[in-house]
Structures are given as structure tokens and as C-alpha cells.
Design a protein around this nucleic acid. Structure first.
Lengths: 142, 142
DNA sequence: TGAAAACTGTTATAATATAACATAACGGTT
DNA sequence: AACCGTTATGTTATATTATAACAGTTTTCA
């Protein structure tokens, strides 16, 4: 959706707090809540929620980090993409694991849906609940 | 996704609290938070958060009510559909209005995306942020 | 170099959601 | 009708998530 990467601030010019939060998220494979981050970063000088939330706000805005709405948690984006196009997560109801999906395949259909009502779409935030492959296999095995 | 309506409890057999919450949501055109509902239903005897949350949980489970994740709020479903298939909201970043969209157009593409990773999808919860038609018109006018 | 803007640290508090527990109603058997 | 397991209820207390407000500092850039 619209040209990419121009609004995407090069990572080098993140502030110290933004960098700390981003690195903490990257070093974790799953999502972290704001308070999880606070715990991990207290030693670096981040002692109060607003410091975390402010950093997250910027990171999410630029798309480097995504918010996992259904869990009030945050994940660093593992796609090569730049900000703006949105996200889609596959969330396993059994084990809680999450996987980020590309939205390419649904973008066109989505656009036609929103255009039908004259809505000008900017970005998608979606979560698909279901059962991930490993959990699916476990079930059929038993 | 799978046959509809069989898991959908007839509305007549909702409990009193579920009925109260559902009616309150229906009589409102926009989303309401749990505490909004609590305020409106205190006179009917709903005095504590768990009473509201418990009713909401069931209603959301069956798909009669949707949760608007980005706002921690709830809306009654205005489609003729039955539970299970998921929701897609168009959320206006300017005026905050929301509109529920049918997911028909994206279901196929979505399915192929999830199947590609062996994920068995149950239901989608999506929100598209952007600018609604009225706000779009206002902008081009100015 | 100086003014606007953005980021920081801090305290306090708001808003959202759940745990835990005792009681009551319901639904389906014998 | 009496039983029993399940589900819903009302309640208190508390956990979790998020923001308001304010004073001070750094960054940006004209």
C-alpha cells in the first residue's frame, strides 16, 4: 500500500530507548508485553512504563515492531518489508505460538472489499486463530 | 469455515446476563467497552466486571458479538451470519467510526496463505485502519 | 545561537481484565 | 421427586495494561 521505505527511518537513527526495546524484542522469538520488556530493561535504565510505551509507539508506527492485539504484546517484524503494509499473524489456539504471514495474497481482495464501501485502506492488522502444524500433527497422532 | 449455524445457540437460550449485554450492544450503533456496559447495566443488577466479561466471553465465542481488539471494545454483529467465520473491521483513523466487512472476498486467499504453512485456520479477526468515505470527502473538500 | 520539536525520566493514576470462592440455578438421569 | 454433575451467578479483591501530566534535556535545523 503506497510506496514503501521512504517513511522508514533507518535503524541507525533510532533513539537509545527505541534501540533497547527493539533489541530486546529481537532477542526473543515470541511476543513480549510492555511489562515483560520493562523487567528486561530495568538494568539499562528503563524504569517506568511510559518509557517502554513511548519507544513501542514509534517502533510500531514505522512497522519494525508489530502489536499482537489479542495478547497486548509486541513482536519484532521478521519480514524484510518496510513499514505500512500491515500484518497478519497465525495464532495457535493450542500452544499459543505465533507466526507472521505475508499479506500479499490477500491484499488485492482486501482492497476490493474496502473500496466497495469507499474506505481508503492504509494498513491491515489481522490475526487468524487456528491450529498450527505441530499441534495439528499431535492431534491426529493421538 | 466448516458448516455454520449448528454451533450457534439459538438466541432464545441465552442467559439473562448474556441477553442484557447483547441488547445493550444492539441498542448502540458503535462499540462499547466492558465498563461502558457495566455502567449501562448496573440498574439491571450487573454490578461487577466479571458479570460483564463472562457474558461477553460467551457471546464472542458464538460470534453474535465481536471484539474490537484495537479498542478493547465490543460490537454486536450486524451480519446475518452465524458464528465462526471471523470478522473484519474497517476502522477510520480520523473519526474513529467502524464498519464491519464481509470476509468472503478474502477467505480464499487467506486460506491459501495459512495452508502454505500447514496452519489450520478457524477464524479471522482483522482490522483495516484507514480513512472512511465521509472523512475522505471532507479532506478533499478542504 | 536560538527556538521548536522530539525524547527523557518520574510520579501518580486510569482503564481493562481476571482469580478465587461461595452460592444458586439448570439439565438430565434414575 | 431426589440426586448429581455442570454451568451460571454475585462478590471481593487484585492483577495487568496503558496513559496523564509535568519538568527537564537533547536534537534539529533555520
Amino acid at each position: 500500500m503506497t510506496q514503501c521505505c521512504e517513511h522508514h527511518p533507518p535503524e541507525e537513527q533510532l533513539t537509545r530507548n527505541q534501540r533497547l526495546v527493539l533489541d530486546a524484542l529481537r532477542s526473543e522469538d515470541g511476543p513480549l508485553t510492555a511489562y515483560n520488556l520493562l523487567d528486561r530493561l530495568r538494568d539499562e535504565g528503563l524504569r517506568a512504563p511510559p518509557q517502554i510505551y513511548r519507544a513501542l509507539e514509534k517502533l510500531v508506527e514505522t512497522g519494525i515492531v508489530h502489536r499482537l492485539e489479542s495478547r497486548n504484546a509486541f513482536v519484532s517484524c521478521n519480514h524484510a518489508h518496510c513499514g505500512g503494509q500491515g500484518v497478519l499473524f497465525a495464532v495457535c489456539d493450542d500452544c499459543g505460538s505465533i507466526e507472521e504471514l505475508r499479506t500479499d495474497a490477500i491484499d488485492a481482495a482486501l482492497r476490493s472489499t474496502t473500496e466497495a464501501i469507499g474506505f481508503h485502506a492504509h494498513r491491515l492488522a489481522g490475526e487468524v486463530r487456528g491450529v498450527c502444524r505441530p499441534c495439528g500433527l499431535k492431534k491426529t497422532a493421538s
